[in-house]
Simulated scan of single mutants.
Amino acid sequence: MNTDVLDSNLPLAERAYRELRQAIVRGEFEAGARLRLEELAQRFAVSSSPLREALNRLSQQGLVRALENRGFRVAPLTAEGVNDLVRVRTLIECEALRDAMAHGGDAWESGIVAAAHALALVERRLGDEARVLDDDWSARHRAFHLSLYAACTSPLLLELADVLFDNAERYRRWAARNRQAPRRKHDEHQQLMKVVLARDADAATALLRQHVGHTGQLVAAALKLAS
């Protein structure tokens, strides 16, 4: 989801959902942590009803686990979970990319170029800092990836890509805090942009599959070291 300042005019349930989703993705709650309605109500200044609605939505998206008659917990971070996430992301995002490449026009291409340039600018500013932990980099990284699929004609594929990206972002942020060497992804993004703009669907989906898979391997390795 967009990490910009949230609209205060949103309905309470939507605002609670967005704020809680953002907090979970950023790692502000530990994996497996109990999500108590009274504590969340105080933190986000909303009542329990919109919070419960938000928690149920997040449960459907895999960021929260609903406990039968016992409330909610933040979803765990596991090697099995990240491997499954990589598998599903590959299926959904490669299909969304192929569809976007088949239907995208000049405005779609311009959006990709602009998003890639914005990402490159913040990467130069950050230098050797842990980029995924920087909210500006994270927002621009998300914008770049979602720009690739923006011309996809399936709203459901686009919605799934959005939800899966946030699940992956949560894993990425955790791994960035727990690994020694930072990953440099600028070249991967530039290569991906070039083959997408060249309309080479086979090469683009192969690069995307490799890009998503590499992230999964690094996260799984960090989880193994931490176990």
Rank of each mutant, 00 (worst) to 15 (best):
44 F>N: 04
211 H>E: 03
6 L>T: 07
69 N>D: 07
198 A>N: 13
55 L>Q: 04
166 D>V: 05
53 E>R: 04
101 M>H: 06
40 L>E: 03
204 A>H: 06
90 T>C: 11
91 L>T: 15
68 E>P: 09
29 F>A: 00
78 T>V: 11
2 N>R: 10
177 R>F: 02
73 R>A: 08
215 T>C: 12
131 R>G: 02
216 G>N: 10
38 E>M: 05
83 N>C: 03
28 E>I: 05
164 L>E: 09
227 S>I: 09
140 R>N: 01
114 A>G: 12
33 A>V: 01
79 A>D: 14
12 L>W: 14
174 W>E: 00
4 D>W: 05
156 L>G: 08
33 A>G: 04
46 V>Q: 10
182 P>K: 11
69 N>R: 14
11 P>L: 15
83 N>Y: 08
160 L>A: 10
186 H>A: 15
140 R>K: 06
211 H>K: 10
141 H>Q: 13
109 E>G: 15
173 R>Y: 08
196 V>W: 01
226 A>I: 07
131 R>P: 11
221 A>N: 07
227 S>H: 11
115 A>H: 01
89 R>G: 06
213 G>Q: 13
23 A>G: 02
100 A>S: 13
48 S>H: 14
118 A>L: 07
159 E>R: 12
123 E>D: 08
65 R>D: 04
196 V>G: 03
40 L>R: 02
145 H>I: 12
177 R>T: 06
206 A>K: 13
4 D>L: 06
5 V>W: 01
76 P>Y: 13
50 P>E: 09
196 V>S: 02
146 L>E: 09
115 A>W: 00
96 A>K: 12
183 R>I: 06
67 L>A: 04
25 V>E: 01
24 I>F: 01
55 L>F: 07
50 P>K: 07
206 A>T: 15
148 L>G: 00
74 V>T: 12
144 F>A: 04
137 W>K: 01
165 F>C: 13
93 E>H: 05
225 L>P: 10
84 D>Q: 13
72 F>I: 14
202 D>M: 14
50 P>G: 09
41 A>C: 13
166 D>P: 02
92 I>A: 14
99 D>R: 13
33 A>R: 02
115 A>S: 06
78 T>Q: 06
100 A>C: 05
139 A>R: 11
194 K>P: 09
57 R>N: 06
113 V>L: 05
110 S>T: 14
9 N>Q: 05
214 H>K: 15
142 R>A: 02
151 A>C: 05
1 M>I: 08
129 E>A: 13
41 A>E: 10
48 S>W: 13
145 H>F: 09
94 C>N: 12
28 E>C: 08
127 G>H: 12
209 R>T: 08
140 R>I: 00
